[in-house]
Design a protein around this nucleic acid. Structure first.
Lengths: 128, 128
DNA sequence: CCGCATCCATCTGGATACTG
DNA sequence: CAGTATCCAGATGGATGCGG
């Protein structure tokens, strides 16, 4: 893995501390990217996030937020009101991810059609 | 999910045809990003890829390559030599992904330390 | 050399119900 | 409102052996 990437800028990471894995593995889980893109817009309360992503379970929302917080990408602020409310916002580190991630999302939107077309062509080919 | 993203440029995709999912879900699988980054450098034979990524199983390499091919990101060329050889290379679509993806990878490398530090701090906090 | 098939351990994530 | 706990189906992915 990383030992193979010295073609561009790897400096000898082992598999275990490969930075690509650290980041990509996280974006890979089903919800992280989505939650991040919502927080790019602005801070949000738990319930707002929940309603913004209709098909996420409460369990997964909590877990995703915890993971993002653990990685220092988002911050969690508890208001001891009654009933309590919790607000999530982007940390400076999280904000620095906004540019690269949005570039990728923009690519996804732009090339969405091409991907779906390629997929359809491929699937049709092996049906024949 | 997608219905929540109109803050930036969504135009009303449903969950099913959400472009973010189409792309990110793929980058999320354990090997796609890594294989793509290798092919950014240049076309490679199956065996070369296998050796470049020591801890991938043959099964996963084949599967990953198939998925990328299905999405039209890479091309597969078989040389009917004896023994046969197969070469994989980036398609034009795949090349268009290089910029955004490398931006993300660069971010990962740059902020790798910060992430690991945040993670360590978080883990230490709940040990206390 | 390249790839498929099978078997199997593990992980992910959804449903549901319950606490402060 | 926000979060936790339990249970469980399905996906992911590794090991191995066979075939062109």
């Amino acid at each position: 893995m990383c030992e193979a990437m010295d073609g561009w800028r790897d400096q000898g990471f082992t598999s275990a501390d490969c930075p690509v894995r650290d980041v990509v593995d996280h974006l890979g889980d089903k919800w992280s990217t989505l939650i991040l893109s919502l927080l790019f817009i602005g801070s949000k309360r738990f319930g707002v996030l929940r309603r913004s992503v209709p098909d996420i379970s409460q369990r997964m929302l909590t877990q995703t937020l915890r993971d993002l917080q653990r990685d220092g990408l988002i911050e969690r602020q508890v208001f001891p009101t009654k009933p309590p409310s919790v607000e999530y916002s982007l940390s400076p580190l999280g904000m620095s991810l906004q540019g690269p991630l949005n570039a990728l999302i923009a690519w996804a939107v732009d090339h969405h059609g091409a991907i779906r077309a390629a997929r359809a062509a491929y699937d049709q080919a092996d049906a024949a």
